[in-house]
Design a binder for these strands. Structure first.
Lengths: 110, 110
DNA sequence: CGTGTAAGGAATTCTGACACG
DNA sequence: CGTGTAAGGAATTCTGACACG
């Protein structure tokens, strides 16, 4: 996946009506999930909401959980946990890389 | 690039207003280029045009050529030539692959 | 809590046409 | 040829609120 492709996934260009078609959710539901901090659309100059493909996928996950009876507050907690795990993983990888670099320079410079 | 990423680039989900912002072209210009067969948006259920990121990139190419004074008829010809070259290349590659396979089986089976 | 709906206003989109050149 | 614009209508989007539960 190139940098350009990433920008496709995260570029906020889809209007709420299309998102509704794509996800099967009503526009009312989509706006409500925003109110509950589950999703963050961008606003265009005149105030209409714009979503990315990543947002659409996130909304589909939310829809699945809601169908299983999970409340929005619960979904929010799960998402925050997931993000935390991701951050921890990234820090761990960073630390391991630093360790390798240190070991490398110890051997090389002495 | 995975199959999913391809679908992002080619999925027609962007309304003409956003395309106008993204490309700097007026909606009048975008509709006109469609009239001249340079671009093929999809129509939603109620008739509004929907564009993909690939369409947006194509429109930016068109904009560049128009700035250089190239007429739409000329741009259309160039695009058709380009597509033809692409097809020829693909056929050539296919033929070469077939040749390799033939050579392979000749040695193996006799 | 989560979602539907009617309300009123603003902005978008569509088509066919006239204008300029 | 390529683009702007006014025209009239239809559909979208927005917000705050009431309703149900």
């Amino acid at each position: 996946m190139t940098v350009e492709d990433l920008s496709y996934k995260d570029k906020k260009v889809i209007s709420i009506g299309i998102v509704s078609e794509l996800t099967g959710l009503s526009v009312r539901q989509i706006r409500y999930y925003e109110e509950r901090k589950l999703i963050y659309p961008q606003r265009s100059s005149r105030g209409t909401r714009k979503y990315s493909f990543a947002d659409v996928e996130r909304l589909m996950e939310i829809a699945n959980k809601r169908e299983d009876g999970v409340q929005t507050a619960e979904i929010l907690k799960d998402m925050r946990k997931k993000e935390q795990r991701l951050k921890n993983d990234q820090q761990l990888r960073k630390k391991m890389l630093e360790g390798q670099l240190n070991a490398h320079f110890k051997y090389k410079n002495r």
